[in-house]
Amino acid sequence: MTYAELRVLSKRVGIKLKQQSQVLVTAESCTGGGIATAITETAGSSAWFDRSFVTYSNEAKMEMIGVKSETLLMFGAVSEQTVQEMAGGALERSKGTCSIAVSGIAGPDGGSDEKPVGTVCFAWAMGGSIIKYETVVFNGNREEVRIQACFHALDKLEDILDGD
């Protein structure tokens, strides 16, 4: 997986968002704005992209996009419950009509037996509802995990836009 492949995917997703009159917002933790970067490398992306919330800390998740402290305490930042709240909160606090939320452990440290390095949780929301959420464990170093997470997030959004 390369950054060039990510840009190609991002451009395809952008075309579909524009065709469907959708506006994307992202809530990113472990990807650090990587999804937004890929999207905004396409000229004209302001037609289908509103903003990105880079919520790396738990405090940022709570303050910027309304993740509940109880959710973080009970399930942790890297959980399907947290990314669902991130996806919903990003929509509520933006002009977006669909959202992607990502939180994970890119490494090289921070993993556990339950959540090893490479564990990334995703959620996608559209029209005020969570459409899909899942956890994936990627292999590779920090950079490889992050780029795989960005690609996966946009690839699944493309599937959602295609009606899959």
Score class of each variant (00 low, 15 high):
Ser57Lys: 08
Gly96Ile: 04
Ser99Trp: 02
Met62Ile: 14
Ala77Ser: 09
Ala47Gln: 15
Leu24Ser: 01
Ser79Gln: 03
Ile15Ala: 14
Thr31Val: 09
Ala90Ile: 10
Ser21Ala: 11
Gln148Glu: 09
Lys95Asp: 14
Val102Met: 01
Glu144Gly: 11
Gly76Ala: 07
Val23Lys: 09
Asp113His: 13
Phe151Lys: 10
Val120Thr: 02
Cys150His: 06
Phe49Glu: 01
Arg146Ile: 15
Leu6Tyr: 04
Ala43Asn: 11
Ala27Tyr: 00
Val117Cys: 13
Glu80Cys: 13
Met1Asp: 02
Ile100Pro: 00
Tyr3Met: 10
Val102Lys: 00
Glu92Thr: 13
Glu41Pro: 11
Arg146Cys: 07
Gln20Glu: 11
Thr55Asn: 04
Ile35Trp: 02
Gly88Trp: 10
Gly128Thr: 07
Tyr56Thr: 05
Gln148Leu: 09
Val136Leu: 14
Val83Trp: 00
Asn141Cys: 14
Val136Ser: 08
Ala106Pro: 07
Glu143Ile: 11
Arg146Ala: 05
Val78Glu: 00
Asn139Asp: 15
Thr31Tyr: 02
Ala125Asp: 01
Ile130His: 07
Ala43Glu: 15
Asp113Cys: 11
Lys95Phe: 12
Leu157Asn: 01
Val54Thr: 07
Ser21Trp: 07
Met126Gln: 14
Ala4Asp: 15
Leu157Gln: 03
Gly104Phe: 01
Arg7Cys: 14
Leu161Ala: 05
Glu85Trp: 02
Asp162Val: 08
Lys132Val: 09
Val145Cys: 03
Asp109Met: 13
Asp155Arg: 12
Ser69Arg: 15
Val67Thr: 07
Asp113Ala: 14
Ser79Asn: 02
Met1Thr: 09
Ala125Lys: 05
Gly32Asp: 08
Lys95Pro: 07
Ser52Thr: 11
Ala123Val: 03
Lys18Ile: 11
Thr26Pro: 05
Asp109Leu: 12
Glu114Ser: 15
Leu24Cys: 05
Ala77Phe: 00
Ala123Phe: 00
Thr135Ile: 14
Ser10Glu: 07
